[in-house]
Amino acid sequence: MYIGDFKETYASDQAVFVNTTSRFWLGVLFVLLAVFPFVVGDYLLFMANLIGITIIGAVGLNILTGCAGQISLGHAAFIGVGGYTAAILSSRFNMPFLLCLPLSGCMSAAFGIIVGGPSLRLKGMYLCIATLSAQLILEFVFVHWESMTGGIRGINISPPQIFGVVLDNDFKFYFLTVTLVIICVTAARNLFRTRVGRAFIAIRDRDISAELMGISLLRYKTYAFAVSSFMAGLSGCLWVNFLKTVTPEHFPLLESVRYLAMIIVGGMGSILGSIFGAVFMTVVPEGIKSILGLLVSVFPNAMSFLFPLQQVIFGLLIVIFLVFEPHGLAEIWRRIKNYFHLWPFDH
């Protein structure tokens, strides 16, 4: 049971995991993550990879939209840029995966800066529409620049190889995904312990007074776009290497909306929330699919409802969370934690 804190240094007061209890649970989490692939079947491994890849993308979007307040409808396209960069580099230039990964991130970041740079002057809905245009234009390029992207047929690649190990199944890939998720989540969390993260939140809350406090709006908005789309690029690169193929239909506008839904459901401006959101939004459609699968015996055409039902449920989740629980699952999680804080002696 956790009773109270006694801290002697500022460092211990500002640590992310402030006490032994929370550090203990972190340890438990790591052990579970390490044991997980050895005990579960193929399907759960596949899902775990998918969730991990989505988490990286969601953390990126949450930094930009949730923390820095710059709404983006083009996140899927930035993920796509990363994915295509990875596919082109590996299929044409036989570039090793460990080089492809950062390069895809950088390529996405570059696109993010190009789109986001002018955002210094664009506010709210104007920015939203500019990113929407970027999404549509990039989608067009994915489809129509056939010599480079392979058009609607896309590009197939061979499985990635790291230090001589070929990651040709979900089990091996899992370790790569988990490592990258941990790195990205830690880096994002770190960022918000320094002046850079504080500047993001200040820009979100009141951009004008932030500037009077000495924060260069141009620089920090550009940073936010760069970090966010870098992570999108990593996510895209992983995605493409995981599926070993890339086609334009992976990155439609709807996917951007799905990412926005994730960070809303999870909790805007919360790194933990991005994780919750990514898990939730990947598991829920699978849940719908399996429920419909059970119904097929009764209603033979149940599966044709899969896509529209997912649509309706995404929409409902967005609306319900924004109306009733604007801080998302992260806030619910915090309340549960507080409830058990002094449990069973909470009076």
Partner: peptide
């Protein structure tokens, strides 16, 4: 946040911490 201009941590430094 007020001390922003007196600090030096950049983007990379912040990510690494």
């Amino acid at each position: 946040l007020g001390a922003h201009s007196h600090l030096k941590t950049g983007l990379m430094g912040g990510l690494w911490y």
